[in-house]
Simulated scan of single mutants.
Amino acid sequence: MRISSRVIGGVVVAALLTQLTACGSIFFPDRRGQIDGKIDPMIAVLDAVGLLFYVIPGLIAFGVDFATGAIYFPPGKTAQIAPEKLREAIGADGKVDNSKLQAILESELGRSFPLNDPRLIQHKGSVQQLAMYGLIPAA
């Protein structure tokens, strides 16, 4: 009987300690220091699970994650590609070949983009924008 109470006590102490340190701060320490942003649902759900089982530690987990900013997604990252490399995707008629553009983006950025998606909204650029990148309008 004494061993089982020690095991149960150890499990309860371990569970309380993990909830007191907050999930987002443990899983994503690089997110600390953010002020605002979009809330990561995975961290919010993990904090809510702590709230369901242990009310006080769950509230502390939410408080710590909000106070440190670990509950927010990291800010958007940007990437740039030299205009000279993008010229390969422009055809002789001045239209952009989506398959060539997708291949360039995948090779340069290491990510795939759904350029063939029918929901994709394409905006036309102005002559000034093309001149800014050193491109000559052709059409």
Score class of each variant (00 low, 15 high):
residue 82 A to M: 06
residue 59 L to R: 01
residue 19 Q to D: 12
residue 94 G to F: 01
residue 111 R to L: 13
residue 22 A to C: 06
residue 81 I to V: 14
residue 87 R to H: 10
residue 118 P to A: 10
residue 59 L to Q: 04
residue 124 K to E: 10
residue 69 G to N: 08
residue 66 F to Y: 15
residue 129 Q to R: 05
residue 72 Y to Q: 00
residue 77 K to W: 06
residue 48 A to Q: 07
residue 123 H to Q: 13
residue 112 S to G: 11
residue 123 H to L: 15
residue 56 I to W: 14
residue 116 N to H: 07
residue 108 E to C: 01
residue 124 K to H: 07
residue 111 R to D: 12
residue 46 L to Y: 10
residue 139 A to C: 10
residue 116 N to V: 02
residue 84 E to S: 09
residue 71 I to A: 07
residue 72 Y to A: 00
residue 42 M to C: 02
residue 118 P to I: 07
residue 117 D to Q: 04
residue 129 Q to D: 09
residue 128 Q to H: 06
residue 39 I to K: 02
residue 45 V to S: 03
residue 90 I to C: 02
residue 86 L to C: 00
residue 62 F to D: 06
residue 73 F to M: 09
residue 107 S to A: 15
residue 118 P to Y: 05
residue 49 V to S: 08
residue 123 H to R: 14
residue 6 R to K: 08
residue 34 Q to S: 01
residue 35 I to A: 15
residue 106 E to M: 10
residue 7 V to A: 06
residue 63 G to I: 02
residue 94 G to M: 02
residue 124 K to F: 05
residue 45 V to D: 02
residue 9 G to M: 04
residue 129 Q to C: 02
residue 78 T to N: 06
residue 32 R to D: 11
residue 14 A to S: 10
residue 106 E to F: 10
residue 76 G to V: 12
residue 5 S to V: 12
residue 138 A to E: 11
residue 35 I to Y: 13
residue 131 A to L: 11
residue 48 A to T: 13
residue 28 F to T: 13
residue 90 I to V: 15
residue 2 R to S: 12
residue 8 I to K: 08
residue 64 V to R: 13
residue 61 A to Y: 04
residue 104 I to P: 07
residue 63 G to E: 03
residue 15 A to V: 05
residue 89 A to M: 08
residue 32 R to P: 01
residue 139 A to F: 11
residue 48 A to H: 06
residue 103 A to F: 04
residue 67 A to W: 13
residue 108 E to L: 03
residue 77 K to H: 08
residue 23 C to P: 14
residue 20 L to P: 00
residue 92 A to W: 05
residue 38 K to W: 11
residue 139 A to E: 12
residue 112 S to L: 09
residue 74 P to H: 11
residue 27 F to D: 04
residue 25 S to L: 13
residue 122 Q to A: 14
residue 117 D to W: 03
residue 67 A to H: 14
residue 67 A to F: 12
residue 118 P to H: 07
residue 128 Q to W: 01
residue 31 R to E: 04
residue 122 Q to Y: 10
residue 1 M to F: 10
residue 12 V to F: 12
residue 49 V to R: 04
residue 43 I to V: 15
residue 47 D to C: 15
residue 81 I to W: 02
residue 94 G to I: 04
residue 139 A to T: 11
residue 113 F to K: 07
residue 42 M to S: 12
residue 103 A to V: 02
residue 10 G to I: 02
residue 108 E to H: 01
residue 14 A to R: 00
residue 6 R to S: 08
residue 80 Q to E: 13
residue 104 I to A: 07
residue 133 Y to Q: 10
residue 100 K to Y: 01
residue 109 L to G: 06
residue 14 A to Y: 05
residue 15 A to H: 03
residue 26 I to F: 11
residue 25 S to F: 13
residue 80 Q to R: 14
residue 103 A to S: 14
residue 2 R to L: 13
residue 1 M to T: 09
residue 124 K to I: 07
residue 24 G to V: 06
residue 89 A to K: 08
residue 131 A to W: 04
residue 44 A to P: 05
residue 66 F to C: 03
residue 6 R to H: 06
residue 118 P to K: 10
